[in-house]
Each structure stands twice: as C-alpha cells, then as structure tokens.
C-alpha cells in the first residue's frame, strides 16, 4: 500500500484535503440536441445531451400524467486505461438508475404529460467521481434544453483516505481509499437527491464529510451557474436590466 497523503498533508495529485480538482463546464456543445453540456473535473471528460420532451416510443411506456425521464450513463471504450467493453455493464445500468433518480426530483415532469425526456451521458475519459460529475452536467444540459426545473442539481463526492476526510476523490483515492460518499443536492431548495456511502464512517467523521461535500457542491454550483449565464447572456456576470 502506498501513502495517499504525504507528511505535508498533500494528496497524490498535490491537492489539499479540502480542495476540488480543476473544473470546467461548457453549455450547448452539441447542435443536434435540445440541450447539452460538457464537464471536465480533473481527468474526467463527460458530455451530457438532452433530447425532448418528445413523443414516447414504445407508446405503452408513456405516462398520462407526467413525462418519462430516461437516462443512459455510458463509458466509451477508450475512457479507461484498458479498453472497456462498449456494452452496458452492471455498474453502468445501476449508475444510470441512480442518476435518473437524482435528476427526477429537480424536474417538473407533470408539465409534460405523455412525453419522454432522454438524457444521454457519455464518459469520454474517466477519473474518480464520474457519477457526480455526470449529474452536474446532466442537470446543466436539462436547463439548457428549457425543461421546467425546480432547481439545478449539483453533485460532489467526499471520502476517507489514509484516515482523513478528503473532498472530491480522484481515481486512485476512489480505488484505494477507505470510504467513498457521493452526494447530489439542490442547493436553493436545500434538498438532497443522491446519497450513497460505501465504507464506514463514525458519526463525527460523517458530519465533517457532509459539511465538506456541501462546500464542494457550492463551489461547483457557482461554476455551473456561470456556464449557463455565459451561454445565454454573453458574459460571466449577470447583468440585471432595470
């Protein structure tokens, strides 16, 4: 086992324990989709595309009172160090489901009865924490598609590495660390839409980890919001028109 945090308190990629990886979000990267967004979080490169609301096929899946949200999280064969089979794996099917359930509470699906909304998430390059990055990108893409939303969803992971609570795990920390806790939150409404925990935390550690994840989400939310404003209003700062 190698040391994941050195004597200066720095992690394998040189970050402090409460530091995020470099993050970049861009809106409207795909012309054919109704809405799209790309996110780069450390080595993660992910594209999210939203199609819809549109007619449902097969027809029997349509709900008379609400829209049908379909999510597909997919890792491209070249996204990892060794080739990943392009067929959807057990892990991808599960992540697709948890992402769908993390986005559903933010969408006002009742506004679009008898329709479907498709969210495609393609991981071009994978690093740790791709599910939370995917949620952030997908909710940005949904806002770009102009679907009625209660709030944007922002995701962030925390974990425990070498006995310390750290923010935004990378691939090595994710695989060799003790705990991984991805969360997604609607910050304006103060509601959590995704909460997973793998490993064991004491109540004190949990409290600290949760606070840290919340701070991480707030930072990511600012970048997410700025990306949307940049595309629609031209500048990175909102200009109120009186």
């Amino acid at each position: 086992m190698r040391k994941l945090i050195d004597e200066n308190g720095l992690r394998v990629d040189g970050r402090r324990v409460d530091e995020l990886r470099p993050i970049k979000i861009e809106v409207g990267v795909l012309k054919n989709a109704n809405g799209s967004a790309s996110i780069e979080l450390g080595k993660n490169k992910i594209i999210a595309a939203v199609y819809g609301p549109k007619e449902v096929h097969p027809k029997h899946m349509a709900r008379p009172d609400r829209s049908l949200l379909r999510c597909r999280y997919h890792m491209s064969p070249f996204s990892t160090e060794t080739r990943k089979s392009p067929a959807p794996s057990r892990r991808e099917v599960e992540i697709s489901k948890v992402i769908r359930e993390a986005l559903e509470p933010a969408l006002i699906l009742e506004d679009y009865p008898r329709t479907a909304i498709d969210v495609y998430i393609e991981v071009l390059q994978a690093d740790g924490g791709s599910r939370v990055a995917s949620i952030t990108a997908a909710s940005t893409a949904l806002a770009d598609a102009g679907i009625n939303m209660r709030d944007l969803v922002t995701g962030c992971a925390v974990g425990k590495v070498d006995g310390q609570i750290v923010l935004d795990l990378n691939d090595i920390e994710d695989k060799e660390g003790e705990v991984d806790m991805p969360i997604a939150i609607m910050l304006n409404l103060n509601q959590i839409t995704l909460f997973q925990l793998e490993g064991i935390l004491t109540p004190e550690e949990f409290k600290k980890a949760f606070e840290m994840a919340l701070e991480g989400c707030k930072k990511i939310y600012q970048i997410q919001r700025e990306a949307l404003i940049k595309k629609y209003f031209g500048s990175s700062e909102p200009i109120p028109v009186e």
Partner: peptide
C-alpha cells in the same frame, strides 16, 4: 423590474 435567471434562482 427585470433580471436574468437560471432554474432555482430566487
């Protein structure tokens, strides 16, 4: 009064 907003903005 007008202002720019994104989903979830107060």
């Amino acid at each position: 009064k007008r202002k720019y907003v994104v989903p979830g903005d107060l």
